[in-house]
Write a protein that binds this DNA or RNA. Sequence first.
DNA 1: AAGACAAGACAGATCGTTCTTGTTTTTTTG
DNA 2: CAAAAAAACAAGAACGATCTGTCTTGTCTT
Lengths: 209, 209
Amino acid sequence: MEDAPQEFCSLQTSDWSFAAKEPQNAREKIMTAASHLFCNHGFSATGIDKILTRAGTAKATLYHHFASKEELIAAVLEAEGETWRNWFFGRLAEVKGPAPERILAVFDLLEEWFSDPGFYGCPFINAVAEFDTGNEAVRQAADVHKQHLLTWLKAQAMEMKAKDVTETARAIAVLFDGAIVAAQHGRDPSFARTARVIAEGYLSQIEVR
Amino acid sequence: MEDAPQEFCSLQTSDWSFAAKEPQNAREKIMTAASHLFCNHGFSATGIDKILTRAGTAKATLYHHFASKEELIAAVLEAEGETWRNWFFGRLAEVKGPAPERILAVFDLLEEWFSDPGFYGCPFINAVAEFDTGNEAVRQAADVHKQHLLTWLKAQAMEMKAKDVTETARAIAVLFDGAIVAAQHGRDPSFARTARVIAEGYLSQIEVR
DNA sequence: AAGACAAGACAGATCGTTCTTGTTTTTTTG
DNA sequence: CAAAAAAACAAGAACGATCTGTCTTGTCTT
């Protein structure tokens, strides 16, 4: 019952998740089903048959669109990453104010994300945690995703004339990862605010050019 | 070759890992082999047969000591947690100085941990990331482990007369988790120092009773 | 005599993958 | 616009491999 085929739903509450999107064709049906199962029950633990049952598609259709399970995993990670970044940076673009306030807004967005009942942690953190050694493709996908965030953070650090732009971005990224993991483990969205307070203190002490 | 049976090694370089200990009997052989494979290649991805091959033991021996794979996972997590905490808190007990310095020493220990070539992240973070939904036993084991750290942090916060003891401990824990994940993903131990600098700033601004 | 262990056959289920057959949908073309 | 060609898709059988777990037989150590 829990993993039954998704019923029609015109209201998109989880803009950050590809798995919550309305699939338009068989390929998307497979990807949204796979995304949900991978992220909630793990990649290795999710078999092809479970994905097909949830997607309501045929086995040949999956292997027509994806050469292997590994390729499906890669496609899901890429789609999840892109959807999440569109949501995240899209919302950040709405924030008015100087760079420090934009950085702090990051943690408000994290709290929104954590508060979603469907929150399952960061797919990339989870994937690297599951595969660790081997599967360099997964690590690379996670790296690409993280670079997007670091690039944005560096831009903010430059705008606020931080002395060490890279180190400032790294520091915020540590708070970012820490908040995600703590919120996932404790099922407690308020870790985003804890991280925000730390960030406020850090940014107020930044050395400036 | 990579996962061959471990050769004799009298020097214990990785005191933090149960998988690096010298097994004394068949049960410990199984547990150290399982620990190594679980932590490096994932729990679901590691089959019983691979564990037995690495341990050099028989299948009946495994099922004589453990009722199921799930129970073996639980036993490995518990052993890994205890070994790690013995190393961590044992080393912390050597640190002289007031509470803030003891807290900062946490991040020096993290850097040591991250610098070990065999570092694979935190087994509990990895386990929760892999299973997420379902498997409440794993989540509970992770919670117990985290409570040990939080209790220690609260004691330090009390000693330095922090106004909000719980929040102070939570903040350091966020930096703790963030450093682990960042170091694991970037294969870069220096994230421990990044987290330490943030902690220094945070502790210097703490509200005191 | 008893328990710990090795070695491995065996079972039933599930894994990822390929293949076949037929239907529906889309695209191209006359 | 209609006919024809092509692609997408459903349903599911079949494959060999691997999965967790059981069971048997025999050796070794206490």
